[in-house]
Amino acid sequence: MVEERAASFGKRSIKTSAKLAGLKLAVSMCDLTTLEGKDTPGKVAYLCRKALQPIEAKYDVPSCAAVCVYPNMVKYARKFLGDVSPVNIAAVATGFPSGQYPLRTKLEEVRRTVADGADEIDMVIDRCAFLAGDHAKVFDEIAATKEACGPAHLKVILETGELVTYDNVRLASEIAMQAGGDFIKTSTGKVSPAATMPVTLVMLEAIRDYFFATGIRIGMKPAGGIRTSKQALAYLVMVKETLGDDWLNPQLFRFGASTLVNDVLMQIVKNVEGNYQGADYFSLP
């Protein structure tokens, strides 16, 4: 039934004004991401500029929620964006993507990354411990990381592609929320499958039940594999019909994506101008 329900959101027909509003909302929820060994200050500058203003001002498109980079790139992003920016800096940390490192170095990494200027930390859970049955270790690591974050927000990456079953995803979501995560996130983007609709649905349901139990609203970030406007709209429909309007904002819902933004922009321009523009009309991130 999870798959069926998830598929039903994709069947909603989002047209005209609803489509335009949904697409702009999607842009405002994007964590524009570059996570490569070849990332440089120059590339990060491209990314930051794109996040600040995804397209010409006349289309009235909001800036992206954040840029998402490796820890070493945080200081460059901070330099480019300045101290006050509508675009947040998110950094993957804790031995991303595998998490197969000692806790001490993970925490040190988090502290330094926050000190360099990260607003948000995207940590990975210890899948080794989770799959070996040591759920307490997973919990303790998240709690310790949260402490190390200080003022920065913590997103907990479950890497659902490695957890495989919905039961595991649900349990890991609960652990992450109880241990202090502000967001739960599906994937690193380095493992296939990354985000899927059914897995995201299971996590949204966990968020809902946690809200009922504690009164705390946890955010959700599907990441990886969301490349088209149609997909993004289906995710928004899922959020709207599972958690309601209160989650339909960048404070509580994000897309982790790199190529999604330009597809969304292409659709926005089509909606405004009436016809499609070629890919060359959209700036590279």
Binding site: S63, D83, D119, H153
Partner: peptide
């Protein structure tokens, strides 16, 4: 659609977006 995130002042230098944790 509101484009700007609501900034919450944390320190003199830095700004982060806060989830509503109330």
């Amino acid at each position: 659609m509101k484009s700007k995130l609501k900034p919450v002042k944390l320190s003199a230098k830095r700004v982060v977006v806060a989830t509503n944790h109330a």
